[in-house]
């Protein structure tokens, strides 16, 4: 079987790179973390990898708006490499700040309507666990075989907002315990339109979400593991297994 190689892209202010790398390694991938400068200087090449991940953090301080500066850097300086990477059918995952970067770099959504991640309706940074429901009709590679998840969010700018109504490739919704995807705050922690928690492209190869799957790969990361039956691994781990399995098949 082919090997899967994952690139974790770091930039000043990235802060979830290590746990994301750990999740991919546990899922059976070879993992490299690279500073964006190493890609710009061509010391590392995107084309050597099957999966590219933009992990969580506050790249460049989230100054101006979350993810904006890294998004421009990717769009203006690495646009061609990324287009080729996508055209080759490889996988891109953006988590939290990575979602913000992918959107602001114009990589997602690939068709209109224009979308952004705006400040949470509460006006506050929110660190809390959310129930998620997977859109099972979505082509998303990462969420295959998953119907619900329980994961933490931690962000101040996670509200999906659109300029005009249109059709989006929604992969993941905020829900309540029963799976109702119309539940309001705090189930929907940021006021996202239509309770959108994650989107993908039409091929299902590019996936971006606000919740942090890498923060729930072992069961004792669950906020109530001391009072619930033990499980082998956390809900987020499936996402990494799916990605690595697909990458090995390329």
């Amino acid at each position: 079987m082919a090997k899967a190689k994952t690139l974790i892209l770091r930039a000043p202010g990235t802060n979830c790179d290590r746990e994301t790398a750990f999740a991919f390694a546990q899922a059976g991938s070879q993992v490299d973390a690279a500073h964006v400068n190493e890609l710009l200087r061509r010391e590392k090449l995107l084309s050597d990898y099957q999966i590219m991940v933009i992990p969580g953090g506050f790249t460049y301080g989230d100054d101006i708006s979350a993810g904006k500066i890294l998004a421009n850097e990717l769009r203006l300086k690495l646009g061609e490499e990324i287009r080729r990477f996508v055209a080759d059918g490889r996988l891109i995952l953006g988590i939290c700040n990575g979602f913000q970067v992918l959107v602001k770099a114009g990589i997602l959504p690939e068709l209109s309507p224009p979308l952004t991640l705006a400040g949470n309706d509460s006006g506050r940074f929110e660190c809390r666990w959310v129930y998620l429901r997977v859109n099972e009709t979505s082509p998303c590679i990462f969420t295959r075989g998953i119907s619900t998840m329980y994961l933490p969010v931690a962000h101040g700018e996670g509200k999906v907002a659109v300029a005009e109504p249109g059709i989006l490739n929604v992969a993941l919704y905020y829900a309540d315990e029963t799976g109702n995807i119309q539940a309001g705050y705090p189930y929907n922690p940021n006021g996202s339109i239509d309770n959108i928690a994650g989107i993908c492209d039409a091929s299902g190869h590019i996936f971006a979400l606000m919740p942090h799957p890498e923060r729930f790969v072992r069961w004792s990361q669950h906020p109530r593991w001391t009072r619930e039956p033990w499980k082998e691994y956390g809900d987020g781990f499936r996402i990494f297994l799916n990605a690595v399995a697909w990458a090995k098949s390329i």
Binding site: F22, F125, C127, R128, P152, A154, V217, Q221
Partner: peptide, 10 residues
């Protein structure tokens, strides 16, 4: 507490 990221680093 909820305005601190207490989950980062996993």
């Amino acid at each position: 507490i909820r305005q601190y990221d207490h989950e980062v680093q996993g």
